[in-house]
Design a protein around this nucleic acid. Structure first.
Length: 570
DNA sequence: GCCGTTTTCGGCCCGACTGTTTTCAGTCG
C-alpha cells in the first residue's frame, strides 16, 4: 500500500487539531504537528524507512508515532485516527477557521451548547446564547458572528502579488508620514510565499501612538480589529488583514527577524539559541539577561554561529543546518537574468507583436528572448497551424537580422496531447530552437496515466522544457493528479529543464519541489509566460520562487550566455 | 507524545492584545 507524503502529514496535523479540541495535553498535539513537519521535509522515502525499521531513529518520532505511522503506511489506515475522528463532529474543525475562535472556546461551545457546525454557531449567536457562557461575552459573540461573515466572503488567502502591491503602497504611506525611522514589510511577503494570509509591517519611531493613529486613518482600511501601542491590526477594503508592529529602533533587527518568520524557523532558531544559553525574542538576544548587541539581521545569525539566512529560505527546511556548516547557496538574483523564454504574441493569444515583445525585452536589458506561442491543438488560445509556424519563423529571421543586441529564439509551447505526444510532426519540430511542452487539456486522468503522459513528453527528443508542471492555478484550481517526484526523476534522467512559471497565478513548479529537483541535478527556466508586454515584469515573482527553492544562478538557464544556452538546448 | 554534555521524569518557545475578569485564559502570530 503506497501513500503519498501529503496524505500522511495531513492526517498527523488533523490528529493534532482533534487532540486540541478534545482538551488533551497541548504538548501531545505539538508532538503530532512536529512529526508532520519532520516528515514533510524528510528527504528519505518514508516507506523505505519503515521497511528498514529506521523511522524510529528520526528525531521527533518515538515509539508511539513509529507504531502509528507504520500502521498507516503499511495498511493505508490508522485505527487511532479513525476512532478519534469519529468521536469529534467534523464541523468543529471548520470552526477553527473563525478568527478569535480556538480549540478551548470551541470545546466550551460543544460541551455547553452542543454546537457542532458553523451554521449552528451562527444561529446561536443570533439568538444571543453565547453571552452566558464562561469566558464569553457580548463582544466575543459579535466578533464570532463577524468572523463567520468574513469567512463566507473571503477564502482568507491572497495571491502574493495582490498582497505585495497593497503592502508596498501602505508602507509608502507610513514612510511619507515622516514618523517612521525604519519601516519594512515582514512576514510571509518578505519570505515571498506564493500565497499569504495577511500583511505584516514593522516600523520603528519615536512616537508609536501617533503612528498607530496615522495607520488607522489609511484610506484603504475597512475595519480596525485591534489597536495597541506596539501592535495594531486592521482589515483592508480588499479583505486583506494587516498587522503593524512598532518597536524601538535598537530592537529593529531582532523584531524584523521575529516578524519575518516563519513560525517554524523562529521556533528552531529559539531552540538553537536556548541550547547556547541565549534567550531569543522580538526585543533581543539575551545572554545571562544581558543584551547581545545586533545592528542588523546578519549580526543575529552571527551571534548564533550561523551564516546569514535570506528571508526566502526561512522555512525550517534545512536552512539552519546548512547555515551552521556554511553551505547556504548564493541565491539567484534579478541582475543574473540574461534571457526570457515562454513569451506569447498575437500569433496565438498574446496582445503584442513579436517586435513589440522583443523591444520590451531589450528595454528590460535582456540579451535573449524565446518566442513560444501555443500549438495547433490549443484551439482556445488560437494555436498556430503549421503554416503559421513557418510564417513566424521567417519573421523571427528578419528581426534577428535587424537587432545585434538581442537574440530571438524560435520556440513553441506545444500541448502535450492526451497520449503524451507533441503537437507537430518532426518536420516542424526540427526547425525550432526549443520546445516547451505543457498540458492544457484532459486534466482529469488517473494519477498513473497523467504521470505516464508527461513522462512520455519528457522522453521526446524535441522537448527541452516542461511547462507549468502541475497545472495549478493558485487559490483557484489544484494541479493535475500526478506523481511529481517520479516526473522530476524522469526529467533528471533525460537531462531536460523544468519551468518555473513566473505568472503570479501559477508559480509552478512549487518551491517545495524545487529543492528536491535541484538535488537531482535538474536545471530550471524561469518563464514569465507573458501574454503582453507588462507580463515580462512577472519574472520577479518567478525569481522569488526560485530563491525559495534554493536555486543559484548556475541552476537557471536564464542566466546563461547565448553560446552556453545553445549548447544546453541542443 | 518526545526527549536527555544537568535529566528516564519533568520539562516542552515567547510575548501582545482582547475580553472577561478583578488577576487571567484564550487566541494569535
Amino acid at each position: 500500500m503506497s501513500m503519498d507524503k501529503k496524505t500522511v502529514t495531513d492526517i498527523l496535523n488533523e490528529i493534532g487539531l482533534l487532540l486540541e479540541l478534545k482538551g488533551e495535553n497541548p504538548f501531545k498535539s505539538r508532538a503530532y504537528y512536529n512529526a508532520a513537519r519532520t516528515i514533510e521535509v524528510l528527504d528519505d522515502d518514508i516507506e523505505k524507512l519503515i521497511k528498514e525499521d529506521r523511522l524510529k531513529d528520526v528525531k521527533g518520532i518515538g515509539d508511539a508515532l513509529n507504531k502509528k505511522l507504520t500502521e498507516l503506511i503499511t495498511t493505508g489506515r490508522l485505527e487511532y485516527y479513525e476512532n478519534l475522528k469519529a468521536s469529534i463532529p467534523e464541523g468543529l474543525i471548520e470552526m477553527l477557521k473563525i478568527p478569535g475562535l480556538g480549540p478551548k472556546k470551541i470545546k466550551t461551545l460543544y460541551d455547553k451548547l452542543d454546537i457542532k457546525t458553523v451554521g449552528e454557531l451562527e444561529y446561536a449567536c443570533i439568538e444571543n446564547r453565547l453571552v452566558e457562557l464562561p469566558g464569553f461575552g457580548e463582544k466575543t459573540q459579535k466578533k464570532i458572528l463577524e468572523g463567520i461573515q468574513f469567512i463566507k466572503q473571503f477564502s482568507g488567502k491572497h495571491l502574493f502579488m495582490d498582497a505585495y502591491l497593497e503592502a508596498t503602497s501602505l508602507k509608502q504611506y507610513l514612510v511619507d508620514s515622516g514618523l517612521t525611522i525604519r519601516c519594512e514589510i515582514a512576514g510571509s511577503l518578505r519570505r515571498r510565499k506564493e500565497t499569504v494570509k495577511d500583511i505584516d509591517i514593522l516600523a520603528t519611531c519615536d512616537n508609536p501612538e501617533k503612528l498607530m493613529d496615522v495607520f488607522t486613518k489609511y484610506e484603504g482600511i475597512r475595519d480596525i480589529v485591534a489597536k495597541g501601542e506596539t501592535k495594531t491590526s486592521v482589515i483592508l477594503k480588499s479583505g486583506i488583514n494587516v498587522d503593524l508592529r512598532v518597536v524601538k529602533d535598537e530592537e529593529f533587527p531582532y523584531a524584523l527577524h521575529h516578524f519575518t518568520g516563519s513560525k517554524e524557523h523562529n521556533t528552531a532558531m529559539r531552540h538553537r539559541a536556548k541550547q547556547m544559553g541565549i534567550k531569543m525574542n522580538e526585543y533581543g538576544l539575551f545572554k545571562d539577561d544581558l543584551l547581545v548587541k545586533c545592528y542588523d539581521e546578519d549580526d543575529i545569525f552571527k551571534s548564533l554561529a550561523l551564516q546569514y539566512i535570506p528571508p526566502e529560505l526561512r522555512e525550517n527546511m534545512g536552512e539552519i543546518e546548512a547555515a551552521e556548516k556554511g553551505l547556504l547557496p548564493i541565491l539567484i538574483d534579478e541582475k543574473d537574468i540574461k534571457g526570457v523564454f515562454h513569451v506569447h504574441t498575437i500569433y496565438s493569444d498574446g496582445a503584442n507583436t513579436i517586435s513589440e515583445m522583443v523591444n520590451a525585452a531589450r528595454d528590460c536589458g535582456y540579451k535573449i528572448i524565446g518566442i513560444t506561442d501555443h500549438s495547433k491543438s490549443a484551439f482556445y488560445a488560437n494555436g498556430l497551424k503549421e503554416e503559421d509556424v513557418l510564417r513566424q519563423l521567417d519573421e523571427i529571421d528578419e528581426l534577428n537580422n535587424k537587432y545585434s543586441d538581442i537574440k530571438i529564439l524560435k520556440g513553441i509551447e506545444s500541448d502535450i496531447l492526451k497520449d503524451g505526444s507533441l503537437d507537430y510532426d518532426e518536420d516542424i519540430l526540427r526547425r525550432l530552437d526549443f520546445v516547451i511542452a505543457s498540458v492544457h487539456s484532459n486534466f482529469k486522468m488517473t494519477k498513473d496515466d497523467m504521470t505516464e503522459r508527461i513522462i512520455k513528453a519528457i522522453k521526446n527528443k524535441y522537448t527541452k522544457i516542461i511547462g507549468h508542471l502541475t497545472g495549478r492555478l493558485l487559490l483557484a484550481r489544484d494541479g493535475y493528479d500526478i506523481d511529481v517526484y517520479k516526473i522530476i526523476d524522469s526529467v533528471a534522467e533525460y537531462g531536460k529543464i523544468i519551468e518555473i512559471n513566473a505568472s503570479p497565478y501559477r508559480l509552478d513548479l512549487d518551491w517545495r519541489y524545487i529543492k528536491y529537483a535541484k538535488e537531482k541535478g535538474v536545471k530550471f527556466a524561469i518563464c514569465p509566460d507573458a501574454h503582453r508586454i507588462e507580463g515580462l515584469d512577472d519574472m520577479k515573482y518567478g525569481i522569488g520562487i526560485a530563491r525559495k527553492g534554493w536555486l543559484e544562478a548556475k541552476d537557471v538557464i536564464n542566466t546563461y550566455e547565448y553560446d552556453e544556452l545553445k549548447k544546453v538546448l541542443k
